[in-house]
Simulated scan of single mutants.
Amino acid sequence: MHIGVPLETHTGETRVAATPETIKKLIGQGHKVTVESGAGINASVIDSAYEAVGATIGSAREALGAELILKVVAPNDSELALINSGAVLIGMLNPFSNETIAKLAGHGITAFSLEAAPRTSRAQSLDVLSSQANIAGYKAVLLAAHYYPRFMPMLMTAAGTVKAARVLILGAGVAGLQAIATAKRLGAVIEASDVRPAVKEQIESLGAKFVDVPYETDEERECAVGVGGYARPMPTSWMQRQALAVHERAKLADIVITTALIPGRKAPVLLSAETVAQMKPGSVVIDLAAAQGGNCPLTVADHVVVEHGVTLVGHTNLAAMVAADASALYARNLLDFLKLVFTPEGQFQINLEDDIVAACLMCRDGQVVRKNG
Rank of each mutant, 00 (worst) to 15 (best):
E62T: 00
G173K: 12
A102V: 01
A144W: 02
D218T: 05
T14A: 08
T275Q: 09
A326E: 04
P344W: 06
D355Y: 05
L142Q: 05
C296T: 12
T14K: 08
E219H: 02
N295E: 04
I203K: 11
A81K: 14
V189E: 10
P297S: 03
E220V: 02
G228Y: 10
G40M: 11
Y230C: 12
V368E: 03
E115V: 06
V167G: 00
A140F: 04
A123N: 08
T22I: 04
I69N: 07
N317S: 12
D212Y: 15
L142S: 00
A159K: 12
S44K: 15
A301L: 05
I255S: 00
A358S: 14
R150F: 04
I46E: 14
E115K: 04
R61Y: 15
Q178T: 15
V16E: 11
K32T: 13
E204V: 06
A158N: 14
L338A: 05
K209N: 15
G346P: 14
L93G: 10
S97D: 12
A117P: 10
I350H: 06
S78C: 01
T22S: 06
K184L: 05
K200F: 09
A188R: 00
A66M: 04
S121T: 14
M279E: 10
V276W: 13
A102P: 01
F96Y: 13
F96C: 08
M234N: 08
K71Q: 05
P235Q: 01
K280D: 11
A105R: 01
A188P: 06
K266G: 13
E222M: 04
T217K: 02
R122H: 06
G366P: 13
H107R: 12
T217R: 02
E79M: 07
A250P: 12
K280A: 06
D365Q: 09
S37F: 00
Q202R: 13
Q347S: 11
V310N: 05
I101M: 07
D354W: 01
I180C: 03
V369M: 10
S59V: 02
L271W: 09
G264L: 02
Q202E: 15
A188V: 04
I356A: 06
S193Q: 10
G373K: 06
G207A: 10
I27W: 06
G229Q: 14
I203D: 15
V357W: 10
T14W: 09
P6T: 02
A273R: 13
L142G: 01
Y50F: 15
V368M: 02
V213W: 11
R265E: 15
P263M: 02
V300I: 13
S59R: 11
N42P: 02
K200M: 15
